[in-house]
Design a binder for these strands. Structure first.
Length: 281
DNA sequence: AACAGTACCTGAACGC
DNA sequence: TGCGTTCAGGTACTGT
């Protein structure tokens, strides 16, 4: 399930199969995603050479030689499946229903890549050569880039009355965080998710930037090391064992050494937040 | 301009 | 077993 680290893991898993390869065949099996597939998707993909794959926020971009880019978002339930000859007896997890295979394509090496998304919140679109895409236009800094500095986050929080939880989910402030890693980063930083973003001291915001970097870096490392070739036996990419300190741990003891608190769940903007009332202020 | 609420969709887990 | 309810890792849109 895709926040930045999961998308990065999916990206790294796809790279060896796609970069430098030509898409020999493509199918759009179900065009009615939340945003309909572009009508010329199959035409543009067929015969296209994938020059490079990269990530921006939770989006994956496949740069196509002379044909612009393919833009992909996994939404809440999107998955990428890989099948190839080297894999031998491919066995798909029976919970991943073929009726949710929306886009399928084959490289000229015979590898099949499938975008499967039960809830259809994911998105596949094309970006014309030299064009930009509106969905990428207003994204904030990449949290693992040099552009994500304490000064940037301090400025972005200034004057904001909304809870810091909500502010960190705003992709214009910082790109790629989702519900899990916001809770995790705020716990590490000792900041109450209900606190107004504009009322956090500069030093604490500066520390928060470091914790955001750390938790994302650790999650990417966990994804990369726990899954050989980033792929499970079922061919599914991007799933790995998480080690959350607070997310989905309501009632559990606070993992901070010496803290007597218990993890609490609250709802903010209709989404769960997990935190320790003892050590997050 | 910032913010809250709603909408989009399916499936898994839970309570009765 | 079946049925209803609630919840799920995202983001765009609308209205105040």
């Amino acid at each position: 399930m895709p926040e930045l680290p999961e998308v990065e893991t999916v990206l790294r898993g796809l790279q060896p199969h796609l970069e430098g390869q030509v898409i020999a065949r493509a199918e759009a099996r179900r065009p009615d995603l939340r945003w309909p597939l572009p009508p010329d998707l199959v035409q543009v993909l067929t015969g296209a050479r994938v020059v490079a794959l990269r990530r921006r926020s939770k989006y994956i971009l496949a740069e196509l030689q002379d044909r612009g880019s393919l833009l992909l978002h996994l939404g809440m339930s999107g998955r990428m499946l890989i099948e190839d000859q080297a894999q031998g007896g491919f066995h798909r997890d029976p919970a991943i229903l073929p009726r949710h295979d929306h886009v399928v394509f084959w490289t000229d090496r015979g590898t099949r890549i499938t975008f499967n998304d039960a809830r259809r919140f994911g998105m596949v679109d094309l970006v014309a050569p030299g064009a930009s895409h509106p969905l990428l236009a207003h994204l904030g800094p990449e949290p693992l880039s040099d552009g994500f500095t304490p000064e940037v986050l301090i400025a972005a929080f200034a004057g904001r009355r909304s809870p810091v939880k909500t502010a960190l989910l705003d992709q214009r402030i910082v790109a790629g965080l989702g519900n899990i890693y916001v809770s995790e980063a705020l716990h590490r930083a000792g900041i109450d998710p209900r606190r107004a973003a504009g009322r956090i001291g500069a030093a604490r915001i500066a520390a928060l930037t470091g914790h955001i970097r750390d938790v994302l870096t650790e999650a990417i490392a966990a994804g990369g090391s726990s899954l050989r070739d980033h792929r499970q036996a079922t061919g599914e990419l991007g799933y790995f064992q998480h080690a959350f300190r607070v997310y989905d741990r309501e009632g559990a003891p606070c993992p901070r050494p010496g803290c007597p608190g218990a993890i609490r769940r609250i709802v903010q903007s209709a989404r769960s937040s997990y935190f320790c009332p003892q050590c997050q202020k």
